[in-house]
Amino acid sequence: MTAYDYYPGCSLKGTGKPYEESLLAVFEALDVGLDELDDWNCCGATAYMAVDEKKAVALASRNLALAEQSGKDLVAPCNACWLVLNKTSRYLDEDQDLNDLICSAIAGTCPSISGNGKGASFEFSGNVSVRHPLDVLYNDVGVEALENAVTNPLSGLRVAPYYGCQIVRPMSPFDDQHDPMTMDHLLAAAGCDVASDYPFKTRCCGASQMMTMPDVGIDLVSLLLEDAVSRDIDVIAVACPLCQFNLEGYQPRVSKRIKAETKIPILYFTQLLGLALGLDKKALGIKRSFVPVEPVLARRASDD
């Protein structure tokens, strides 16, 4: 069995709980191991970098150092965590002075990583790759293996794949930067009717501005949702907890704003894959959706 280390990040333990539940369930069903990184810490997201750059790098580096202990690739499902860890990994690789600074700081302060005593030292081997579940499922597991495991194809379910910003910009190691397709292919393998022409698949969801400046956030998600309503989309599939929360949480306000009823379930792509694999809805966190999912699934069944 292939196995990876798993970096949940803070959101997957809170608002993004259904992402964690469905991710673990789907990986288990596909016989791919995910071992939660012991004592992982927050990646710093976009906030730490706005206050202190060196500390932000050190914070993210500790997770990379922990992952070095097993040497397995590290799966980070949240787009922000994925980018921060990848950027940090690149900084450490490209800037030897910075690398030396972080390594000596880890050696001097983290006996649980570098060992005890005066001889404590630490070095990054650089062997750990930080991977997004879309990357692992598409490139390591493969569309064919997924297709073979599908028992309940979601035919007739019109799904718009929404990737968000940070898994395609500024780095895009596993997908096309302007027109990413990995999620489209995975959802197609699950039998979904994929709306690949949804034009806003990589446009910003408002990110943390929904918390700090809600009017601005509502403006951004209104555009994304209004287009989905006009295309008769049943479900928007996402790959990031912040995208999920922003698109789902404010639909009553968006409805007023765009003067059209907006009741679109926003599901993690792993929840949809899980449904197609015939997994238990409760185990996939389907009931944690604010917008009821059952009516959409029932409508699909009655259309068949």
Partner: peptide
């Protein structure tokens, strides 16, 4: 929001 649309 750090969406990097400008950067790319």
């Amino acid at each position: 929001t750090s969406c990097y649309a400008c950067t790319t």
